[in-house]
Amino acid sequence: MNKKVSENGTDSIKKKTYEYIRDSILQGKFISGSFVEEGVIASDIGVSRTPIREAFNKLSSEGFVELIPRRGARVRAISPNEMHEFYETRMVIETYAAKRVCSIRPPIPERVDELISEMETLTQFVMAHEIAQLDRELHRIIVALSGNQVLLELYDSLQFRHLLACSSVPIDSKLLSVVLQEHKELVSALKNYDEEGVLTTLSKHLDPDLVLRFRRF
């Protein structure tokens, strides 16, 4: 479907152009390693090249694209080795955060139950891209609950890898159902401050070797 952007309001144009390119990357329209053509974007959503270039600069700073001189914006590719290292890093951060949460027992926000409910609905319709957004929000909540702001800032710096990694999952309803069940187990253990349960779920949910079997590169 052609998503034309209204030329009313510069800030609105910038935001919509950025979101269109970013979502297109995460949904696989612009695949890893390919160049995003300014002319294609301009034609797709009806904007000038200025907001497109500004969006490229923002996406570059966030790690989604690489700006190649005289070539343009190339979608950031994640190799199997980098993917493995990314999940190892998440394991370290989230395991520490989970232990801390179970120790200090902060109130668990109602948002975690809302996220599970939303994931369940999206899983029925095999909406992997939208689930990826909720996946990151859920895991970020766990890190935030640890109360360690520096750790949260470090976790946030991994955002582009998190979303690109999730978007690389083949759209498979059975696989999404497995991920949903793991999220349910994770939230249940978290709400009971069950450290063993949380760590057991995280160990399989974030196991780099298990994750890589389901990725496409």
Rank of each mutant, 00 (worst) to 15 (best):
L115N: 02
F86G: 00
S157E: 14
V36T: 05
D44I: 03
V143T: 04
A165F: 05
S117W: 04
N192E: 15
S61R: 14
R213L: 07
E182P: 03
F64P: 00
A77L: 09
V178H: 11
I93Y: 03
H162P: 02
A144S: 14
E114C: 06
V112E: 00
I25D: 00
D135A: 06
T201P: 06
I78A: 04
V187L: 06
S157G: 15
V75T: 05
E196N: 13
N57M: 15
V150N: 12
F217W: 12
I171F: 08
L134Y: 08
I13T: 12
R215L: 15
E120C: 04
D194Q: 09
D207H: 09
A42L: 09
M83T: 09
G46N: 08
A144R: 10
M83K: 11
S103I: 04
T121P: 04
H129N: 09
A128T: 10
I21D: 01
V150S: 12
G28Q: 02
D194I: 02
Q124R: 14
K14P: 08
D207E: 07
P170R: 10
G63E: 02
R161E: 12
T200G: 13
S157T: 06
L115H: 00
D209M: 06
G72S: 09
R71P: 05
T123P: 00
I31D: 09
V5D: 12
I78H: 04
I141D: 03
E94T: 04
A42H: 08
S103L: 11
I45W: 02
L59Y: 05
D44M: 14
D23S: 15
K191F: 04
F125N: 08
Q133R: 11
K99F: 04
Q27M: 12
E130C: 07
E66R: 13
A98S: 11
S24C: 10
R161H: 15
H162Y: 11
L186E: 01
A77W: 10
P51D: 10
